[in-house]
Amino acid sequence: MPKDDLKRVAYYPGCALEGTGHSYNRSTKAVGKALGLELVELKNWNCCGAMEVKNVDPKIQTYLSARNLAIAEDMGFEKVMSPCNGCYHNLKKAEYDLSHDPASAEVNAQLSTKSGHATYQPGKVETIHALDWIKDAVGEEELAKRVKNSLKGIKVANYYGCMYTRPRHIFPEKDKGPGSESTLKPHFMDDLLAAAGAENVDFPLKTACCGGAHALSDSDTSTKLVLNILTTAEACGAEVIATECPTCHSGLEMHQVRAEKVLGRKTNVKILYFTQLLGMALGLSARKVGVHENFSDASSLLKEKGLG
């Protein structure tokens, strides 16, 4: 059932969407607009710490995330939407840690006071992913009605990566039976793309890791992991891997190139953000959703399928 309070939510794009994830930012906004949803960007947000800051000290990461939640609260929002798995995961984790670990709450209070802003108290703001946002605010039924160019005939492997479902305890709303998201076999992206006409293939590596944490510091491991994801998607019959995170997306693109240059392994599967696919299904041009800005060039495939 579509929820009205999701028609206008706070938006936390995160750093990656201002850099390599540019086309994800563009396509997320375009899809929201086409669906009559409003995004209000968090004022003066900061980086949530990604996967790196916690290795220096996890409580710094909790604070960095909580600062953004405090901003959302201050702006009067109960929901903040993030399209990046890293940001989504970190805000969720901060929410969990602040309500379960007194030491984290204490460090957050101390750093917030020293920084001169209100201390975020857990329970005030709920963090949602772009997938939750479209699924709950619009829903498959309504989405299907609005489709202008069906994605019919496009075979898609849906790739969710690690941080959308793990660790399970920070996602209390998942695994709650019918209608809720599954941490073992997530399906929200599958559902939305199916509503837009796409043909989802049965893909066993939905939540496999691309080695993003060591994309640069241990590139050989990352390249092996990515190559496994790409070749498995191909073996499952996919023409496109749909992504819902800028880090997963650029990890796949970057190591697709590296696998070719370093290991001589060429793969043909294209990588597109799910918002790019949805946007085109809603009648937006390929340009409008930034397909030309992707590294993995999908334009000829899209033309062949009558899109873009």
Partner: peptide, 10 residues
């Protein structure tokens, strides 16, 4: 070399 995928935690 742990890639922080949290499969173990899961």
């Amino acid at each position: 070399q742990c890639v922080s995928c949290n499969k173990c935690t899961y």
